[in-house]
Lab assay of single mutants.
Amino acid sequence: QVALSRTQVCGILREELFQGDAFHQSDTHIFIIMGASGDLAKKKIYPTIWWLFRDGLLPENTFIVGYARSRLTVADIRKQSEPFFKATPEEKLKLEDFFARNSYVAGQYDDAASYQRLNSHMNALHLGSQANRLFYLALPPTVYEAVTKNIHESCMSQIGWNRIIVEKPFGRDLQSSDRLSNHISSLFREDQIYRIDHYLGKEMVQNLMVLRFANRIFGPIWNRDNIACVILTFKEPFGTEGRGGYFDEFGIIRDVMQNHLLQMLCLVAMEKPASTNSDDVRDEKVKVLKCISEVQANNVVLGQYVGNPDGEGEATKGYLDDPTVPRGSTTATFAAVVLYVENERWDGVPFILRCGKALNERKAEVRLQFHDVAGDIFHQQCKRNELVIRVQPNEAVYTKMMTKKPGMFFNPEESELDLTYGNRYKNVKLPDAYERLILDVFCGSQMHFVRSDELREAWRIFTPLLHQIELEKPKPIPYIYGSRGPTEADELMKRVGFQYEGTYKWVNPHKL
């Protein structure tokens, strides 16, 4: 086992960053958080920038500027975001240094004079007029057009580079997404736009490419001749908990499936790229999406959770019991969808996408189930092999396979070949997804960000279904809070070829 401390991990990262040409360590950078008073800024962006600063992973002359409508001070920003920093008493001095680099400007999102004030403020910072500028839009999409237009007109660096990070949702359907994309691309070049999907920053999602293309053993079996089906799962054990009003506007397909799960599907299904260059990788992902037809209604199961009468606390409440959810809402909190990649490698292999709230566990994984062994000599005792990439929690890679049961006879039983990170790298604290992705933006690497043509294809696949749901308002199937979801989803999976045995229990190697 390799035991690495946080300091050692960050030392390795620093070495990698400083050796590259793309990370300008000594240049002045300004990180501007648009929507600095909001939840995302408070819980994710400010803490992430602090962790990067604490670990010495930001360029040395980096300033952080918050911008929002609320009249706040840096002290206010500190008060609301610091509880999420997880700072230790030993880091007190470092924390003071961090907040000394912070400033805040209040202004409207659609007022040109406010942006001119913001620009004057940035120019007044040390070497601010020639600094590289990175704008993070932690804002609702309704203000994107006004904000990007004003940034472009008043706040661009004339000497350094300018980059803009856009948070999902990128529209509600193909038409609104196209409108937003066309607007942003009329102001910024594609190499300046970073559409963030934080799932692409997760260690195991990034590991998929290495697993596939750096190991000879997987190449020959990664196709329709050997793989019976692919299941991509995202499960949350909690409901909307008072935030249903926002969720109800989008629903589970827009929230998770059309982005996170579809991105994971691309990494499983794509061909080997010409290189690890950002556009070479994204070219292959677009090719996969172009091979997927629009979702067919007979390959869809929609569910909505109801309270568990035997549960406790939140578990007793259904989705419609959330006071922020519109009365009688038919918005799905669970969806199972089957897609097919219609190309030579994957023809006929079902890709089953499942996601839901208020389920029995927290889990995100990719599961490849292989065909049955031909010419069975073990009297149907063999179960199908599976390769599982567990994204969260407890990152893991393992192969479910058959071995001989101890004893006199040739009785096979299920076991696993474990390729888990935790076994080799004991207690290594890896940077989280937002840390990686923000560092990628500083480096100018777009590999783990969504390109406009990729986004367009993703919406093309799901828009007809979303429009049909909005028009017909089908009643989702009720499922109990804390269950596996509607049984109809299991029946759909069985119908397209997935075999669920229920006889195997994964042993978490992190707890051995």
Rank of each mutant, 00 (worst) to 15 (best):
D255P: 02
D255F: 03
V256F: 07
V256L: 11
M257A: 12
N259E: 03
H260L: 01
L261I: 08
L261T: 05
L261K: 05
L262S: 09
Q263Y: 03
M264C: 07
L265E: 03
C266E: 04
L267P: 04
L267S: 08
L267G: 06
L267R: 01
V268K: 07
A269W: 01
P273Y: 02
P273N: 01
A274Y: 13
A274R: 14
S278V: 08
D279T: 09
R282D: 01
R282Y: 01
D283W: 06
E284R: 07
E284N: 08
K285E: 01
K285N: 00
K287W: 06
L289V: 09
K290R: 14
K290C: 07
I292F: 05
E294Q: 14
N298D: 15
N298I: 12
N298C: 13
V300L: 14
V301K: 09
L302Y: 08
L302F: 12
Q304D: 00
Y305D: 02
V306S: 15
N308W: 08
P309A: 14
E312L: 14
E312M: 13
E314T: 12
E314C: 12
T316G: 12
K317N: 11
G318I: 03
G318D: 11
G318E: 06
L320M: 12
L320I: 10
D321A: 11
D322M: 06
P323E: 15
P323L: 15
T324V: 08
V325D: 02
P326M: 06
P326R: 06
R327K: 10
G328R: 12
G328H: 15
G328E: 13
G328I: 10
S329C: 07
T331G: 05
A332M: 07
T333N: 01
F334Y: 12
A335M: 06
V337R: 00
V337Q: 11
L339H: 07
L339K: 02
L339W: 03
Y340I: 08
E342A: 12
E342H: 14
N343C: 12
E344H: 07
E344L: 08
R345P: 05
R345D: 09
R345G: 09
W346G: 01
D347K: 15
V349F: 04
P350N: 00
P350V: 02
C355R: 00
G356H: 05
G356I: 06
G356D: 01
G356Y: 02
K357L: 02
A358W: 02
L359C: 13
K363G: 05
K363A: 05
A364N: 03
E365Q: 06
E365C: 06
E365W: 03
Q369K: 05
F370H: 05
V373D: 08
V373Q: 11
G375C: 14
D376A: 11
D376E: 12
I377K: 07
I377S: 08
H379A: 15
Q381I: 11
Q381S: 13
Q381T: 09
C382H: 14
K383C: 15
K383L: 13
N385G: 07
N385C: 05
L387W: 04
L387I: 06
V388E: 03
V388Y: 02
V388L: 06
I389E: 00
R390P: 02
N394T: 08
N394W: 10
E395S: 12
E395C: 09
A396S: 13
V397S: 02
V397H: 00
K400F: 01
K400D: 03
M401I: 09
M402Y: 04
M402L: 14
M402N: 15
M402P: 03
T403L: 12
K404Q: 02
K405P: 08
K405R: 13
K405S: 14
P406D: 01
P406T: 06
G407I: 02
M408R: 09
F409N: 14
F409C: 15
F409V: 15
F410M: 11
N411G: 13
S415N: 05
E416G: 10
E416Y: 06
E416P: 02
L417V: 01
D418N: 07
L419D: 01
L419E: 01
T420D: 14
Y421H: 05
Y421C: 05
G422T: 15
R424A: 06
K426A: 13
N427F: 10
N427L: 09
N427H: 08
V428A: 15
V428W: 08
K429W: 05
L430C: 10
P431E: 09
D432P: 11
A433Q: 00
I438S: 00
L439T: 13
V441H: 03
V441A: 15
F442Y: 09
F442M: 08
F442H: 07
H448A: 09
H448M: 07
F449I: 04
F449V: 04
V450S: 06
V450K: 04
R451S: 01
R451L: 02
D453H: 08
D453K: 08
E454W: 03
E454T: 02
L455A: 05
R456Y: 08
E457W: 05
E457R: 06
E457D: 08
T463S: 10
P464I: 07
P464V: 10
L465I: 15
L465P: 05
L466I: 12
L466Q: 05
L466G: 08
H467V: 09
I469S: 11
E470N: 14
P478G: 12
Y479L: 03
Y479N: 01
R484M: 00
E488L: 11
D490T: 11
E491K: 13
L492W: 10
M493W: 09
M493V: 15
M493K: 11
K494A: 14
K494I: 14
R495M: 12
F498L: 13
F498Y: 15
F498K: 09
Q499S: 14
Y500F: 15
T503V: 12
W506K: 05
